Simulated scan of single mutants.
Amino acid sequence: MITEEHIQKFLEQAHRVGDAALTICSSGNLSWRIGDEALVSGTGSWVPSLQKEKVSQCLVATGEVLNGVKPSMESGFHLGVLRERPDCDVVLHFQSPFATAVACMQETPKDFNVTAEVPCHVGKEIPVIPYYRPGSPELAAAVIAALKDHNSALLLKHGQVVCGKNFDEVFERAMFFEMACRIIVQSGGKYTTLTPEEIDDLEVYVLGKKQ
C-alpha cells in the first residue's frame, strides 16, 4: 500500500536529483517500486520541482494507472526494467551536462573506466543504445534489454538511465556516471582507463567478488 510518507519520500528524492543538476526542467524521469505498485513522475512534470499532483501511481505488472495521473512517456522502460530486475526498485532517466554531451559525440567512448568509482558503482561495461524516439516502444525495448544485465546505459543523442536497489544507490550511480563523462570531456579525449587487471584487482579487494 502506497502511503503519504512514500509520496513525500519520492518527491524529496526527485528534488535531490534536480538539486544535483542531473535533470533540468522537464528532462528526465524517476520511478520507485513499492510492492506491486510503482510511483512514476508524471508526463510533462519537472523532476527538480516535482509536486504530488504530478506523481503517477501504477501497477508494475500491467502499467495500469491507479490514481488518474498519466505517467512519464518513458514509463514503458521504467516498468519494464522493474519487471525484469526484481533486485532493483528504483529507475532514473537523467540528462546531466557532461554525460549528455558524451551521448551526443560523433565517436562514443568505448571504455568509461577512468576511475575506480566507475567499475565499482556505474558498471565496468556501459551499454550504448542507438537513438530511438523518446517514448517509443523501440526505445523502451532497447533500455529493458540493456539493463537486464547492466545497471547503467547511455542513450545516444538523448541521455542516460540507471537502476538500483534504492535511491542512494541510483543517485551514486548517476553521479559517478556524470563524473566519468566530465573527465572524458574535460580531458579533450586524452584520458586513460583502468586496465582489465586493475579492474580485477578492485573486484578482489574492494568489491569482494572473489576469494
Rank of each mutant, 00 (worst) to 15 (best):
T108Q: 15
E117H: 14
T23K: 12
H6W: 15
L207I: 05
E117L: 12
E84V: 03
E84H: 06
H121P: 08
V122I: 11
Q51T: 11
L194V: 09
D89P: 05
V161T: 02
V185C: 05
D168P: 13
L154R: 00
E138M: 10
L207E: 01
I24A: 14
R16Y: 10
L194S: 04
Q51V: 09
G68W: 13
E74L: 06
F77K: 04
C88A: 08
Q51W: 10
N166G: 08
V128H: 03
Q186R: 13
L194N: 06
K52R: 07
T108E: 14
G159W: 15
C120F: 11
I34N: 03
T43V: 07
H121N: 06
L92C: 01
M73C: 03
S96F: 14
G80K: 04
L66C: 13
L156N: 01
K165W: 11
N67W: 04
A141N: 06
P71I: 04
L79H: 01
T100A: 05
L30A: 01
E203P: 09
G188H: 06
I7T: 12
S49Y: 10
S96I: 14
E74G: 05
L154F: 07
E125P: 02
L11Y: 00
G159V: 14
A61E: 15
T115M: 14
A20F: 14
T43F: 09
P48H: 09
T62H: 07
G18H: 01
D149C: 10
P86Q: 09
L30S: 02
S187W: 14
V102F: 09
E169C: 11
E5K: 03
F77M: 05
R133A: 13
K54P: 01
E64I: 01
A153H: 06
N166M: 10
P48E: 11
S187E: 11
F98R: 06
S27N: 09
K70Q: 04
V185F: 08
E37Y: 04
H121T: 08
M105H: 12
V40K: 02
E4L: 04
W32D: 05
H158P: 06
T100D: 09
C181A: 11
V161P: 03
L154K: 00
L39P: 00
G164E: 00
C25P: 03
S27K: 02
C58I: 02
V128K: 02
H158W: 10
E172M: 15
G44E: 00
D149L: 13
A38N: 01
P137I: 14
K190L: 13
S45D: 01
L139V: 12
E169L: 10
L147T: 05
H78W: 02
N151V: 14
P71T: 03
T195Q: 02
Y131E: 13
Y205V: 07
A146Y: 06
A101R: 02
E117I: 09
